[in-house]
């Protein structure tokens, strides 16, 4: 039997790791009573991640295991990160389109109507800037149009 799949972990190592885990548990509880402000969450999650790493590397013996198993596990963890990160990119910026509540939609419409009315007050001749704004046929409007064009 080859060594990579059947590594026997010495009892001493297991007990040491267990000691480390208990220490970290006590530590995280103790730290929870220290007012860390915004650091509280990262510290708690960091300690938990350390504990989880210990369990994975030694209790689950991933350190001595076939690399493909480690790769599998890593990809799984990366996917969880992707899931959390990309969802939070949305939830952190939610509403950056502005307030789209129905009430304000009505207000927006009223504002737009007002703006439109204001725009209608501007004489249409002033808004003609491009050749396309002038009628193709030289009918009744032709005189006025060419007059604008000249000025």
């Amino acid at each position: 039997m080859s060594d990579d799949g059947h590594h026997i972990l010495p009892k001493a190592t297991l007990l040491k790791v267990f000691g480390g885990l208990i220490f970290l548990t006590v530590l995280t509880v103790a730290v929870a009573y220290v007012p860390l402000g915004p650091l509280a969450v990262p510290v708690a999650i960091g300690i938990a991640a350390t504990k989880a790493t210990l369990v994975v590397l030694y209790f689950m013996a991933l350190r001595y295991d076939n690399p493909v198993n480690a790769l599998t596990f890593t990809i799984g963890i990366i996917m969880v990160m992707v899931f959390i990160t990309f969802t939070m990119i949305d939830t952190a910026f939610r509403g950056d389109m502005g307030n789209v509540d129905r009430q304000t939609m009505g207000e927006i419409e009223r504002e737009q109507e007002a703006a439109q009315q204001q725009q209608e007050q501007i004489p249409s001749e002033q808004l003609r800037v491009a050749p396309a704004d002038y009628p193709d046929d030289r009918g009744a409007d032709a005189g006025a149009a060419s007059g604008d064009g000249d000025s």
Binding site: V82, F86, I89, D90, T91, F93, R94, G95, D96, M97
Partner: peptide, 22 residues
């Protein structure tokens, strides 16, 4: 394929930042 799911939600009210990223 795991990084693009938000393109189904462009008009669902998700944030514009994430819409652009997706």
């Amino acid at each position: 394929g795991f990084l693009v799911w938000g393109h189904h939600m462009f008009v669902s009210g998700q944030s514009v930042v994430s819409s652009i990223v997706f």
